[in-house]
Nucleic acid binder design. Structure first.
Lengths: 189, 189
DNA sequence: TCATCGAACTTGTCAATGACTAGATTCGGC
DNA sequence: GCCGAATCTAGTCATTGACAAGTTCGATGA
């Protein structure tokens, strides 16, 4: 199966479709996604993507599952909750398409096995990070601190991706700004 | 022009379409929105909505503009940044469709006049709230506190709407939980 | 009263899309 | 070199968004 052009078998059509889909989503959002357009980009027939992903929802579900896998890998062995937050924001910036799809449930097949397992894994790494609350003398509720940290990181990432922080932040490095934010949340006072 | 059924003129088709659209978006997200479906629900021809909103993007832009107007009204004369945050979360829960569309820029006509003016107004009320940082002795950067508060509120609201907090929160009242979160961010320590 | 003009709505049409079916080609194991 | 299964193609149908042209209504003014 030479990789040369115009083979009947693409070689790695699944990956090619996924990559093209991520490009489109990053640039124009999930609503601009068209299976036929992706097929054209990959140089295959209009029904070829369906073989790998079943339908549009299947493609988006695969993207979300992949995203949760990537997020879990990103979050493993983060030193503490604060660093986990920084990594969370970095993940959103480096994988904006995954991030956006992961948190748009109405686009996904929620009972998909790959999705649920990947999400469960990511949730576990997230919980591990929460259990390692940064040093602060007082007994803050760990559960509450976890929700706070997740909300702060998720909100910051979301506002960043929707271009709502370019005004107030100017040209500062987002990760640096976010690190300062965690300082407000986790100060030892 | 009696309101009786089957008049040639609907009476308030624009509002009817908007309301139906908000229903659909709340239940199935913006991607499930179909102009023809909205027309059917309103009992008018398939091209009637276009007369009021030009196209799908126009409808969504109108929803976003209305959302910014509602948000501005919600945020005016909030006592301090903390209360503004609580109101922000409440707005997201009471107007989930507006909220979702407002922060999905790729669905909107960004240069639309109504949208930009409504957004500017909401931004101003938001800035007013930020300038009223709750009492905390130390000189925290107001700009940073504003970003933190917005991120926290926006993240909490987003995770809430995407059903990602039902696990950790149980059946607690979301607003109460969020109020506790602001306590972590704005403590006087 | 009535002509008129614009707004609101309808009807018809076209290209594009998602989903489905049946069939062709190729790969890998034996 | 044979065969089953995976991969991809080709064709079709219902639905949709967008557009064009025509119809109905109602408010305004003479």
């Amino acid at each position: 199966m030479s990789v040369g052009r115009r083979a009947y078998h693409h070689g790695d059509l699944r990956r090619a479709i996924l990559t093209a889909a991520l490009d489109v989503i990053s640039a124009e959002g999930p609503s601009a996604l068209s299976l036929r357009d992706l097929a054209r980009r990959a140089g295959v027939s209009h029904a070829a993507p369906a073989h790998h992903f079943k339908d549009r929802t299947g493609l988006l579900t695969a993207i979300a599952a992949e995203g949760y896998g990537l997020l879990a890998a990103t979050l493993t062995d983060a030193a503490d909750l604060r660093e986990a937050g920084v990594r969370y924001v970095r993940f959103a910036r480096e994988h904006p398409a995954h991030f956006q799809v992961m948190f748009t449930p109405e686009l996904l097949r929620e009972n998909d096995l790959e999705l649920t397992t990947a999400r469960a894994l990511a949730g576990e790494t997230l919980r591990n990070a929460v259990s390692a609350v940064p040093s602060e003398g007082r007994g803050t509720d760990a559960r509450l601190a976890g929700i706070a940290a997740w909300s702060l990181a998720h909100g910051f990432a979301t506002l960043l991706l929707s271009h709502n922080l370019t005004g107030p932040m100017g040209d500062q490095d987002p990760e640096e700004v976010f690190h300062e934010l965690t300082g407000l949340l986790f100060r030892s006072g």
